[in-house]
C-alpha cells in the first residue's frame, strides 16, 4: 500500500511504510503499532488521534527512532530519502535538531532540572549550529521572545521549576525550534496544560510551523485539538490506523464508527446541561491478545458477525483520498450533531 497522501503536491518529507512496533511484556509480546503507512509532505501538519494505549506514542517514537531498547521495529521510516531505522547512532544524532525535533507532553521531564533555561538552549545551538557563546545567548533570547515568553533575558537565567507549566512548554518548543527542524513531532503537547494555555501553545505551534514551512505531527487524544490546526488527520485504534483523511473532509464526512464515537464523546458547548454524553462503552482491547476481527467491534454499535470474524483493511474504495478500515462505513453526511460557537 502506498502512503502517498492526496493533496500533497511535493514528494513526501516523511514516509512511514509498514511500520510495526513490538514490545516484550511479562504477558507476552505486545504489538503496539501494527503495519502503519503514513506520508507527510514538507510544511504540512498531520494529526494523529487516538485513546491512551492505541499506539500513537509508540508510532511517534518509531518515527523519531526513540523506541525503548527492547522494542522491535518492522518496516521503513523514510525521511528525506533515508531510512531512519538503518542509520547509525551518530548520523541519527546529527539529524536531531536540524532535521527532526520533538516536543513531549510533560516539559518538566524533557527539560533538565539542574541547568538554567539559557544553558539548555545555548548548548543545543552550540552543538548543532556551532555558534559561539555570545551569538548563542543572543539567538536563545530571540527564540524565547519568539515563543511568547516575557522578559526573555531574565528567563534565560532561570531554572525549569521557576516557570509555570505553560512557560516550560514554550521553552521546550523554543529548544525544539532552535535548529530550524524540517519535522516537528509534538506528542500531546498540551494535555497537561490548562485550556487557555493549550489554546496559546497550539497557536504558537501553528504560527511557527507556517512561518518556518516546517512539517508537523500533532499527537492528541482530543479531536477538538486537531480540528482547526491540521491538514490531515489519522485516527488510530489498537495499533492501527482506522481512518485517514484531509481534516475538513474527515469532519464533514466520517466513515469509521470509531471516529464518530470519539467525536460524539466530546462535551458540546451547545447541548443543554445534564445531557448524557454518548460515551464509547467498554475499553480498548488488550494489545497482547489481538482480536481476529475488527478491534473496535466489541465497542461498536454497528458491529455484526462479520466484524468479529475478519479484520477490515485500510482501503479507499471511493478514491476520495480518505481511506478507512470498516466493514460498515457510515454513509452520508453526519447530522447527529452540529458544531456551533458559543
Amino acid at each position: 500500500m502506498s502512503g502517498v497522501v492526496s493533496g500533497a503536491v511535493s514528494a513526501p518529507l516523511l514516509s512511514v511504510e509498514g511500520v510495526a512496533v513490538e514490545l516484550p511484556t511479562p504477558r507476552g509480546r505486545l504489538r503496539a503499532v501494527d503495519k502503519v503507512d503514513l506520508a507527510l509532505a514538507p510544511g504540512r501538519t498531520l494529526g494523529i488521534v487516538g485513546e491512551s494505549g492505541c499506539g500513537k506514542t509508540m508510532l511517534s517514537r518509531a518515527i523519531l527512532q526513540l523506541l525503548p531498547k527492547r522494542a522491535r521495529l518492522e518496516g521503513r521510516v523514510m525521511f528525506g530519502g533515508r531510512d531512519l531505522a538503518t542509520l547509525d547512532p551518530e548520523s541519527l544524532r546529527r539529524l536531531r535538531g536540524p532535521e527532526l525535533a520533538v516536543v513531549f507532553q510533560d516539559p518538566m521531564t524533557s527539560l533538565n532540572p539542574v541547568l538554567t533555561i539559557g544553558t539548555q538552549i545555548i548548548e543545543t545551538l552550540q552543538a548543532h549550529l556551532g555558534m559561539d557563546a555570545t551569538t548563542a545567548f543572543k539567538r536563545g533570547t530571540e527564540l524565547l521572545a519568539a515563543v511568547g515568553i516575557p522578559a526573555p533575558g531574565q528567563r534565560m537565567r532561570q531554572y525549569p521549576h521557576q516557570l509555570s507549566g505553560g512557560m516550560r512548554q514554550r521553552v521546550a518548543i523554543a529548544i525544539a525550534l532552535s535548529c530550524e527542524p524540517k519535522l516537528l513531532v509534538a506528542d500531546e503537547p498540551t494535555t497537561a496544560l490548562d485550556v487557555t494555555v493549550q489554546a496559546q501553545i497550539l497557536d504558537l505551534l501553528a504560527r511557527e510551523q507556517q512561518r518556518r514551512h516546517m512539517a508537523m505531527i500533532l499527537i492528541t487524544h482530543d479531536l477538538g485539538v486537531v480540528a482547526g490546526r491540521t491538514d490531515e488527520v489519522a485516527v488510530m485504534y489498537a495499533g492501527r490506523i482506522v481512518e485517514r483523511a484531509p481534516t475538513p473532509a474527515l469532519f464533514a464526512r466520517m466513515r469509521m464508527p470509531y471516529t464518530e464515537a470519539l467525536l460524539a464523546a466530546i462535551p458540546k458547548l451547545d447541548s443543554a446541561p445534564h445531557t448524557a454524553l454518548p460515551a464509547i462503552p467498554g475499553r480498548p482491547p488488550d494489545p497482547t491478545r489481538p482480536l481476529p476481527g475488527c478491534s473496535f467491534a466489541p465497542r461498536c454499535r454497528y458491529a455484526d458477525e462479520l466484524c468479529g470474524r475478519a479484520k477490515p483493511a485500510l482501503e479507499d474504495p471511493d478514491d476520495a483520498g480518505a481511506p478507512y478500515a470498516c466493514w460498515h462505513p457510515i454513509s452520508g453526511a453526519r447530522t447527529s450533531w452540529s458544531a456551533s460557537s458559543p
Binding site: 504477558r27 505486545l30 507532553q105 510533560d106 480498548p284 488488550d286 497482547t288
Partner: peptide, 22 residues
Amino acid sequence: MAVLEIEGDTALVSPVRKRHRL
C-alpha cells in the same frame, strides 16, 4: 497522561507472578 497510558495496557489482566522470573 503518560502514566495512564502504561496502566491502561495492563489493566484487568492477571499479572504474571513475578516469582517465576527471579
